[in-house]
């Protein structure tokens, strides 16, 4: 059960990334990193975690930006809030899936506090920004005692709530590649009410040339222990003209490719029933049909 009282912990406030990494290494496995706190503090109240140390990022400069760098892509610092995605015109223009995920993300209050990186590190199959980032592709930049390493977003989530980040590593940045002029993306989620976690979410990123799909990445959430790419379904799309008939086939394929469960937000059966429907809709949304 939850408590009205936070558990006891020591609060660490490093002033530099190396200091933070050193602290993580020193107290390996006993530290929870606190940025926006929208999940982490709740987890402390409900005793889902009882860390000996909370390491807060407030003393670290240079991690709070969302920057689009022409020729390279989008860089999202570890302290950047979800709301910053909405404030950045490049995100809306070049990464619509991510913009749309941020738009419906939780509540205005949470968007003002929660970080995009926190959503990725949470490792939830329901993460909206995470779902969009998986479709867009990208990398997580981790800083450890041995230096920096980049992990592809496709490999980052390994199990429910578990990521590739090691205990002594600090996630410092998200990188999303530069889109081309033919890149299209979109995001859709289904919820019980507006302010809710997704019961199902989907994002797609396509390279479209004269209505023919050159490349595609489809990610779907709440249909397994982690966010998944629907790779079989993607294959059916590559090299094809997008038509109603094809969309129907994709929908059928998506239903086969997922492994949802019953939980408090929905049922396995329902998720299978609607997965294909929202996949069809997100593709139409991305290519601007309807």
């Amino acid at each position: 059960m939850s408590s009205r009282v936070l558990p006891q912990f020591d609060l660490l406030t490093p002033q530099s990334i190396p200091e933070a990494v050193a602290m993580l290494a020193q107290h390996q496995g006993q530290v929870s990193v606190l940025a926006g706190g929208t999940d982490m503090l709740v987890w402390n109240y409900i005793r889902k975690v009882k860390p000996a140390y909370l390491l807060r990022l407030s003393g670290l400069d240079d991690l709070d930006n969302v920057n689009y760098i022409p020729g390279e892509g989008l860089r999202i610092g570890a302290k950047a809030k979800v709301v910053q995605l909405l404030d950045n015109p490049d995100v809306a223009e070049k990464f619509p899936a991510l913009f749309q995920a941020a738009e419906t993300f939780a509540t205005p209050q949470i968007r003002n506090m929660a970080t995009v990186m926190g959503n990725v590190l949470r490792g939830s199959p329901a993460g909206d920004c995470s779902c969009a980032i998986l479709a867009l592709g990208g990398q997580v930049v981790l800083q450890g005692p041995e230096g920096e390493r980049l992990v592809d977003i496709d490999d980052f989530w390994v199990a429910y709530g578990v990521t590739e980040r090691k205990d002594d590593e600090l996630a410092v940045e998200l990188r999303i590649p530069e889109p081309t002029s033919t890149t299209r993306s979109a995001f859709i989620r289904m919820t019980r009410v507006h302010e809710d976690l997704a019961k199902l979410n989907v994002a797609v990123c396509l390279e479209i040339n004269q209505n023919t799909c050159q490349q595609v990445r489809i990610s779907m959430g709440c249909v397994g222990p982690i966010l998944v790419r629907l790779k079989q379904t993607e294959k059916m799309l590559v090299g094809k003209q997008i038509s109603d008939g094809l969309l129907q086939q994709l929908a059928a394929s998506a239903q086969e490719e997922i492994a949802p469960i019953d939980d408090q937000r929905s049922t396995e059966e329902y998720r299978r029933q609607v997965a294909g429907v929202i996949l069809k809709r997100v593709i139409e949304k991305a290519i601007g049909a309807h």
Binding site: S2, T107, V193, H194, E195, Q264, R265
Partner: peptide
Amino acid sequence: TSYDKVGLCRNNGFTDYKMFGAAD
């Protein structure tokens, strides 16, 4: 408000008990 088969409440808070919000 729902219960599991042994009578424990499955949604004793606003995470999983969903009221209409302003946007709804």
